[in-house]
Design a protein around this nucleic acid. Structure first.
Ligand SMILES: [Zn+2]
Ligand SMILES: [Zn+2]
Ligand SMILES: [Zn+2]
Ligand SMILES: [Zn+2]
Lengths: 156, 156
DNA sequence: GCTCTCGATGAGATAATATAACACGACGCC
DNA sequence: GGCGTCGTGTTATATTATCTCATCGAGAGC
């Protein structure tokens, strides 16, 4: 993810990221099984949003046996619900969450050139979106804010 | 879309909507063929975001013959590029654009209860998102702002 | 130790969404 | 007529997501 420290809270990386994910899962009352660890490690090993099938392939490689897509989907759904992974809706793909401890509505910047996806947080903006929804009588539960475009390496 | 007049610019509806779409297409140098008209009318006949396959079914019914998905996809892609339809990324579905004349980054409010999807516009917010992307060295081309949640009819 | 239950995973099928490859006819242009 | 472009048809295929049912193991209660 080329995870630049874009704000002051803690961003985990490498093995610390795995540990943080495990802690967040356990804190949320979920088990941290070998399979879940394998899925998380595989997910985190991508430097771009990865599809469930990409992850399934990598998990299969890691474990040396065939792991089916639905197993991966089950675990990814759980990860997303526990804030340990996020789904990039406009790409049907997933990212490891570098700060599972901290809850916000992330803004993803998705490069259509190279696929690199970074994320920024801006509570003023995301709260603005939530408020705008409320003002329309809508109960906001999961804002999706993604920007398709070109990263600094890919712009003309 | 239960299209409430949420701001002061013109929102088309019914046949006027079809006319506005045709005008926007022609103004953009595209043809308004019978097939495109059929796809647009079918699209506009849904009161919720419709998948390409939903639309293909309805077009097939309208024309009394089988119309394949890829024909519909081609035309929907064109519609989106000409701002005559929009894609709801978090649902893999499409909506007719009630104001093809007017360009902004719409905010979709997508109800997870009944599926109803309304849209609001807030240039302050959407420009904020674009600016936030720029500040990160990212060239924003197509912001996606969607809020999953519950509409006023479906909230507890 | 035995059995019951529950959560997690395995396995296979199938559904839903999206794209690719190539053919053909209409139309404008020369 | 010959040619290029555009729109569509047709078929096949790729990709993403879900369903159903079987199995397995850990822990609770006895
Ligand atoms: Zn890039
Ligand atoms: Zn953050
Ligand atoms: Zn609703
Ligand atoms: Zn508007």
């Amino acid at each position: 993810m080329a995870s630049v420290p874009h704000h002051d809270h803690v961003n985990h990386a490498g093995r610390a990221l795995v540990g943080a994910a495990r802690d967040a899962m356990v804190a949320g009352g979920e088990q941290w099984t070998d399979m879940r660890a394998a899925v998380f490690e595989s997910l985190a090993s991508f430097d771009q949003p990865a599809s469930a099938y990409d992850i399934a392939d990598r998990v299969s490689q890691l474990l040396g046996r065939r792991v089916a897509a639905n197993t991966v989907y089950r675990i990814l759904d759980l990860f997303v619900s526990k804030n340990v992974a996020m789904r990039v809706e406009s790409r049907n793909a997933y990212l490891a969450n570098a700060h599972p401890d901290c809850l916000h509505d992330c803004i993803f910047l998705v490069c259509d050139g190279c696929g690199a996806t970074t994320h920024v947080d801006d509570d003023v903006l995301s709260n603005g979106v939530r408020e705008r929804a409320s003002a329309a009588g809508f109960k906001a539960e999961r804002p999706v804010i993604e920007v398709r475009g070109r990263c600094s390496d890919c712009r003309d």
